[in-house]
């Protein structure tokens, strides 16, 4: 889609008379960006790759080359594997809930009539807030003795008095995911809403004349036409869930049962000061995240080509 958008903008006659002046100005305007990205992203990535094959540890002298030793150690490290497992669980829970909830929210916003503007603003709100603040507020909501959640459940007559949400691992993973879902669901909703709005109304008119029911129209008109948008939203959800850090760190700290892989990177590098070991792990996370994005991008391309 990138190229399709870029190509029409390239005009044949654009070079014109002052082509060389344009080229100079263009390079001048692009230069600071190139410099910033080179020095702050590309060279650091290269150095991460390079140093992950060395032993870099402020507590130990020298930085000897050790090849793929860190990577071998990482694959055998039970704590790292547990963190991977947690991250995959987070990805599964978050992507599923954000996609289902986001589509539902978009459909509701689309039908809200004149309240739609306000409903959209309310739905977008959690995305705009700092993730850390959300985590702190939700931590208070989950409070066993005085929290809102147990308060509601007790008021509803259920036996949740002083129920601790972070004791059981499965429940804790869900509870932590839910805070992340609260923040990221709006993005899915907004993307799907944009896709919904691009569906021409006559399609529904025609289906209505043919006597199609609502569920039928949804399955045969709406869903196929928002598939591209859903795929894009799922890519965003997946990458965000792989990058999961803020909420997990605030709510459960370094607890192993709920520790995502990124908290593991942080602990290795900035608390244990195993710099290069942490770097090797972050390289693995980068590869996993890029691979998942790539799968989605390829699928989106196939889907959009079918459209």
């Amino acid at each position: 889609m990138t190229l399709a958008a870029a190509v029409p903008a390239r005009r044949k006659g654009d070079k014109g008379i002052d082509g060389s002046a344009d080229a100079r100005l263009g390079l001048m305007l692009a230069a600071p960006i190139v410099f910033a990205m080179l020095s702050l992203v590309l060279i650091p990535v290269a150095s991460t790759l390079w140093e992950s094959m060395h032993r870099v540890n402020p507590m130990m002298a020298g930085t000897p080359f050790i090849g793929l030793q860190h990577y071998r150690d990482l694959l055998a490290d039970p704590i790292v594997n547990e963190a991977w497992r947690n991250t995959f669980i987070y990805v599964a829970i978050c992507v599923a809930l954000e996609t289902a909830g986001g589509i539902g929210a978009a459909l509701l916003i689309n039908q809200a009539g004149r309240w739609r503007r306000y409903l959209l603003a309310a739905v977008v709100l959690p995305w705009a807030l700092p993730g850390v603040v959300n985590a702190v507020v939700w931590g208070w909501i989950y409070n066993p003795a005085f929290g809102l959640l147990n308060g509601i459940l007790v008021a509803a007559g259920l036996d949740f008095e002083k129920f601790v949400w972070f004791n059981d691992r499965t429940i804790a993973l869900f509870a932590v995911s839910l805070v992340h879902v609260w923040r990221m669901l709006p993005l899915t909703a907004v993307i799907v809403l944009a896709a919904l709005q691009s569906i021409p109304n006559d399609l529904y008119e025609a289906a209505r004349i043919d006597g199609a029911s609502r569920p039928k129209m949804f399955a045969n008109i709406t869903l196929p036409l928002i598939r591209g948008g859903i795929a894009i939203a799922m890519t965003q959800s997946t990458v965000a869930a792989f990058n999961f850090f803020d909420e997990a760190w605030i709510l459960t700290g370094s607890a192993r049962g709920t520790r995502p892989i990124l908290v593991q990177v942080y602990l290795e590098a900035f608390q244990n000061l195993h710099f290069s070991y942490g770097m090797a792990l972050s390289v693995l996370v980068m590869i996993a995240s890029l691979a998942v994005s790539l799968v989605y991008v390829l699928r989106v391309q196939r889907v959009t080509r079918l459209d």
Partner: peptide, 14 residues
């Protein structure tokens, strides 16, 4: 570079 997770570069940046 949008696809590169930010924390991959945090350690060298630090």
């Amino acid at each position: 570079t949008i696809a590169i997770p930010g924390y991959t570069v945090l350690i060298p940046l630090y």
